[in-house]
Amino acid sequence: MPKENKNKSTRDGFGDALLALAKKDKNIVVVSADLAESTRVWKFAKKYPARFIEVGVAEQNMLGIAAGLALADKIPIATSFAVFSPGRNWDQLRISVCYSKANVKIIGSHTGLGAGEDGASHQALEDIAITRCLPNLVVLAPADYNEAQKALAVAIKHQGPIYLRLTRQNTPIFTSAKSIFKIGQANILQKGQDVTLIACGALVYDALQVAKKLATQNISVEVINCHTIKPLDKKTILASVKKTKKVVTLEDHQIHGGLGSAVAELLAENYPVPVKIMGVNDTFGESGTPEKLYKKYGLDQEHIIKNIKEII
């Protein structure tokens, strides 16, 4: 494992990568809905004002404008909080973007309980469910700052719409800046024999910590970082599960319709084994620090360990 760095958020990874990529690619334009600072595009706005479009608090229009820019061969980056985009503009995402295969990159920040103190209204817990059901759309949920940078670079190279799921809170940087990020290719971060632990987003770090702790108790956990929720890496997941025959999934999202559901769909059809889906259990969140919220809603390391012990 690479040495841990200081904490940063995936939205910071996105914003920093955007600045670097925009220098090389003049077709990159940003469409913002009055959250330029929070979504980390304000540096871009200052540096490239002619390529920065501010539409105000109007997410439906933001995505439509992004679609129009894409149809005119720009590479629009449409940024907001995920509760608003894709939360509020799903119809525009479906028809203006996905049906038309418009080359729009939809950036949804402040996802999950990790959005914290703003409370339930601002914690996107449904965004994976409402995006992974849309044809032509790729869904990415990077695990840390480094991976968010790579995810944006790959998203810009990819021809077609992509939803990039980002987080507000600072979390450890634990993936290597040099490791390969490929759409649809999950990374096995730790090999194991007893159970496959599949996670996405900021909770991948906790999955790894849990695997380390359980190793001392002679429980061998295989940890998969499933940064691409769609298209799902069926090959890597099936190969791992055929070996371990038990699965726990972990995400900062509702248990219905997210990563866990995607994995369960795959396994139900191809290799049915016991699965525990860890996420937010059909309830809204509330205000609090991410740490306290994860503990209260059953997503902290203690709960992950408990669930693994129950399934093996």
């Binding site: 439509g64 679609a67 129009g68 820019l69 149809l71 203006s96």
Partner: peptide, 28 residues
């Protein structure tokens, strides 16, 4: 559906979406 027929610039059906795309194209 813009990808089905030549000359069709945008997909539409749900009302109100074309004008935003027109604004996007005009900005481009």
């Amino acid at each position: 559906h813009n990808l089905s027929l030549p000359g069709v610039e945008n997909s539409s059906g749900p009302l109100g979406q074309g004008i935003s795309q027109a604004v996007g194209m005009a900005l481009a």
